[in-house]
Design a protein around this nucleic acid. Structure first.
Length: 184
DNA sequence: CGCATTTGACCTGCGC
DNA sequence: GCGCAGGTCAAATGCG
C-alpha cells in the first residue's frame, strides 16, 4: 500500500492550507494517482503546528470517503444536455475526496472558489456546499460537507484538474508532497 | 456599484 | 410514469 504524506515543514501555514492543496496538472502528482489507491494516509507530523491550530489531518479511509462521492457522481459522468447546451460532467475526470478535522468549512487551498449551490443531503443533518473554481475556463468543482457521523470532520471532494496556476502562491508553492514506500 | 452568496426552482438519473 | 435525491441555474439579496 502506498501512502502519501504532506510535508508539514514546507510552510508554517500548513495546518491551514496544505491538506486542502490539490496538485496541479504540472505537478508530478496526478489526482488519478489518489483514486487508484485503496487507502490514503495524509499524516500530520508537526505537533507544534497542530497545537497552534484547531485543525488536524486524520487518516483518510479512502473507500469510505470516496464511495459516497463516486456513488453520487458516477451517474453524472456522461454528457447531459440542458437548453441545448452540452454539459459533459465526465470531462472533468479526476476526482478526489478526503476528510479533515476542522472547525472551518471554508479553508484556503490557494484557489479562488465561487459558491453556486447548497443542498441538504439525505441521511445527513448537514448541508452540502457546491463550489466552482472562479478562474475563467477552469471547470474544477468542489463539494464541502460535514461528516454525517462526526460533525467535527469536513469532507471535501474535488472534481477535475485546474488548468491554471494557483492564484496565491505565497505559501502553497512551498508545499511539497512526499511519496513514501515505507508503508508498502 | 460590482461581486459573491443565498436560495428556490429546475433538471436529470435512478428505483419502484 | 412517478417520486425521490443529487446537482445546477439564476434571480434576488447582501456586503464591502
Amino acid at each position: 500500500m502506498d501512502y502519501y504524506f504532506v510535508n508539514p515543514h514546507a510552510t508554517p501555514n500548513f495546518a491551514h492550507s496544505t491538506h486542502m492543496m490539490i496538485p496541479n496538472p504540472s505537478s508530478e502528482f496526478i489526482l488519478s494517482d489518489y483514486l487508484m489507491l485503496d487507502d490514503i494516509c495524509i499524516d500530520h507530523h508537526d505537533q507544534e503546528s497542530r497545537s497552534q491550530s484547531t485543525e488536524s489531518l486524520e487518516k483518510v479511509t479512502f473507500n469510505d470517503v470516496n464511495q459516497e462521492f463516486n456513488d453520487a457522481t458516477s451517474k453524472n459522468n456522461n454528457i447531459k444536455y440542458k437548453n441545448g447546451i452540452k454539459r459533459n460532467k465526465g470531462e472533468a475526470g479526476q476526482k478526489i475526496a478526503f476528510r479533515t478535522r476542522s472547525e472551518l468549512e471554508i479553508m484556503d487551498d490557494g484557489y479562488k472558489w465561487r459558491k453556486y449551490g447548497k443542498k441538504s443531503v439525505k441521511n445527513s443533518p448537514n448541508l452540502r456546499n457546491y463550489y466552482k473554481c472562479s478562474s475563467v475556463g477552469c471547470n474544477v468543482k468542489k463539494r464541502v460537507e460535514r461528516d454525517r457521523d462526526d460533525s467535527s470532520y469536513v469532507i471535501t471532494s474535488y472534481e477535475g484538474v485546474h488548468n491554471h496556476e494557483i492564484p496565491f502562491t505565497s505559501h502553497c508553492s512551498q508545499i511539497s508532497f512526499v511519496h513514501s514506500d515505507a508503508y508498502n
